[in-house]
Amino acid sequence: MKTNQDRLILYVAGLTALMLLLVLTGDLIPIVFRLIVHTGCIMGIISIMMLRNVLSDSRAAVIWRLYALGLVIMSGIILTIIFLHERFETGDPLLLGMEPGTTLLVFGISLFPFWFIVLWVIGFRRAIVPLEKEHHLNQLKSERAESREDADG
């Protein structure tokens, strides 16, 4: 019987296999299609691995949603870069002194680590390690220390 954990990992396997297929088929598939699907696969895998580690219950639902929204926006930026780059011709107007796709890369993707820091500050850290789990771990740790002391006499 498959658990929920098994199902998520099977999605990871499926998305990874699809990416590998897209890489190995090379130019047989149109480049824009390959790029869009590839981006979706990468962000899908990252989202599955990360979101399952962030609490989504009432204590952290907002953080979970903001975090998921961040991943969606990042996917959107990468997809926009794909389209902007495909359309750009030498001589077209620049944006902030750079090709529009490059501007989006520099001022879009590079800001995400800071976006996640903001989330961390407003509560993301509590959504990763809830206090009751921390207390439980400390309890297990003390029990282990006590049993060691008993064993040592």
């Binding site: 890489v23 390959r34 590839h38 981006t39 990468i42 780059h85 796709g101 490059t102």
Partner: peptide, 21 residues
């Protein structure tokens, strides 16, 4: 100076995967 640099988009996407995960 384009969005993907000299190596092109598929190389860049592969780097996202390799260096993120």
């Amino acid at each position: 100076v384009g969005a993907w640099g000299v190596l092109g988009p598929m190389a860049c996407l592969s780097y996202i995967f390799l260096f993120k995960l």
